[in-house]
Amino acid sequence: MIRRAAVLGAVLLLALPALADPRDDYFARLAAAVRSGLEDAASARAPTLVRPVPIKVTWKAVRVGSLDLGAPLVAMTAADLDRDGKGELYAVTSREVVAYALEPRRVTVLGRVAFTGAPAVPAPRDVVGTAAIEGTELVAGVSAWATELRVSWQGTALVGQPGAPGFLVCPGERAVLVPGRNHFGDPLAPLLGVRCRADLVDAEGHPLRVRAALTAGKLAITVERCSASGACQPAATHEYKDYGVAFELADVDRNGTPEVIVSGAGAPGDPDAVKVIPLGGDDKKGAFRYRFNGGVAGIAVIDSDGDGAMEVIAAVRLVGATRVDVWRFN
């Protein structure tokens, strides 16, 4: 019944603007009535909100392994794209995408796919890149190449398809580099990176849409709280200063307050740190902090063992090195 009403409503909504006579508001009133009816029907059948169950997180830095990538790491993310219940770590280098399985004290290669096609001209002097999950694909963009690489699993094989020019920074959000430079946006307002999460919930179980954007010296985070019907309203904004290009969003302790996991904003080659900051909390203190002599080249959150708990991972290297150490923090 509801499905039939929804189809009828959708057809009317699409058709009515074209049919409507501007001198007669009958169709407009009809459209409003249908829309209202649809919203009432949707709210009457709203999915039940599920409150998150907090878990106790023990923060402790452990080096999981060392990866020789053969090229500089430019982006890193994690997802369960092969649908085996365990997340994979995806490392994007200037040459390829490599998928890894994380075990307690070991990192093993699951597959790799090389970038192909035309080199980007002009390309920035330092290679930069993005890694975003869209559906069952990892979309990787690297400044050295003219087009993205869309990576997915076909059975047990990791395969790649050339994608579009530009960079997918979040699902549905694309960006292009300023020609010859290592950032998006424009020369006067550089945008260095974006991370988004739409799979988190607040303490009451309302879905959250969280977007973090790093501009020169400022990490701006917007949080939208969504109703059960899917309508979202701005809920909070947060700004943090002096953090680096490696950052990630998560709710590791599942208490309904997302955390932002950040690196430092020093020059390439300087010592670095990983810090976990609950949104709205004290960013000077943070929930956890760990220092490195090398630089943090990537941060990801992963459920590597399929137990439902997210683990924070960082890739640390000496500047310019192709070998990275993988650290786990919880």
């Binding site: 930069v128 020093g266 670095d272 080249a297």
Partner: peptide, 12 residues
């Protein structure tokens, strides 16, 4: 002062 990172080189 020790907390630095691997940010990107800046222009200008």
């Amino acid at each position: 002062a020790l907390v630095h990172a691997e940010s990107r080189p800046r222009y200008g």
